[in-house]
């Protein structure tokens, strides 16, 4: 019993201590960090790094880019995937199965495998250094997992509900918006959270397609701070805190949905 409690406590410390160090370091000066890397700031808590990072970097711009890319990528992936999942459940078995297999094929091919031809494609159609380009690639990259999760859910919905609405004269679109979507809300919200985390944190696609500061997202900007600040950990961690803040706030309030969504993504991904 004692041993179990002790292990739980140690694991909790292993998670908490690094996070506390990040917060503390972000309110220290560089000198304080070198003098005393792990302790409290001697000169008291200062938010100078937060002010400095917004002055030295186009932080607000990166934040905006991440927000725009994430919101559009999540919304359109969800919409298109829900439409496909609905289509698959409404089609005859064999055709539905073929389309399901086609769309979920993407889950087996990691993004890194196609990064070379994807890069030349995006370059050729002139979508490098463009948020639109990033959003389009994002949608197609997470479509497979979203189709997989949503189809699994929609197949469990009672067929009679759809059939009743056909008798009432509802067309496919109406059936989709009035029956399928409302009934799939639990699965949609779990998928949405999974997609939010994926897109907000993604590094690979911005790294491939974006070189212009005006279009960089937070993870890419953060990565490049390292070139600039080297081992200036107070500045780097200030960046970490700002880049993680929206996810952390959302996690605190929507914790249960996060756990459900991220686990669905893991189990089915």
């Amino acid at each position: 019993m004692l041993f179990k409690r002790f292990s739980l406590f140690v694991y909790a410390l292993l998670i908490l201590v690094p996070l506390i160090i990040v917060l503390l370091t972000s309110v220290k000066t560089l000198q304080e960090t070198f003098a005393n890397p792990l302790g409290f700031p001697e000169g008291g808590i200062k938010f100078d790094n937060y002010v400095a990072i917004f002055q030295e970097q186009t932080m607000a711009g990166y934040f905006m880019n991440s927000t725009v890319v994430t919101l559009f990528s999540v919304s359109f992936t969800l919409l298109f995937a829900a439409m496909i999942a609905f289509g698959i459940t409404r089609l005859s078995n064999w055709l539905g199965n073929i389309l399901f297999a086609l769309f979920t094929l993407g889950m087996m091919v990691p993004a890194q495998v196609i990064m070379v031809p994807l890069y030349s494609l995006v370059l050729n159609i002139g979508l490098t250094n463009s948020l639109v380009g990033l959003i389009l690639v994002n949608i197609s990259s997470t479509l497979p997992i979203a189709v997989f999760i949503l189809t699994g859910f929609m197949k469990t919905l009672p067929k009679e509900l759809f059939e009743a609405s056909t008798i009432d004269g509802a067309g496919n679109w109406k059936m989709f918006t009035k029956v399928a979507i409302p009934l799939s809300l639990p699965s949609l919200s779990a998928t949405a959270i999974f997609l939010f985390v994926m897109h907000w944190n993604d590094l690979l696609y911005p790294l491939l397609f974006i070189t212009d500061n005006a279009y960089k997202t937070l993870p890419l900007a953060l990565l490049e701070f390292r070139g600039q600040y080297a081992t200036n950990y107070p500045m780097l961690f200030t960046g970490v805190v700002i880049a993680s803040a929206p996810m952390v706030v959302a996690y605190v309030f929507l914790q249960r949905y996060f756990v459900a969504g991220m686990t669905a993504g893991a189990v089915k991904g």
């Binding site: 993407g106 031809p117 197609s140």
Partner: peptide, 27 residues
């Protein structure tokens, strides 16, 4: 099921073909 059901696949299929199927084939 009415034929309009095929339209539900269209937006996703277009993006998926351009940004996944095509690059995979060209790899």
């Amino acid at each position: 099921t009415s034929k309009t059901i095929y339209l539900f696949f269209l937006p996703g299929l277009i993006l998926y073909s351009i940004f996944f199927l095509y690059p995979t084939a060209s790899a």
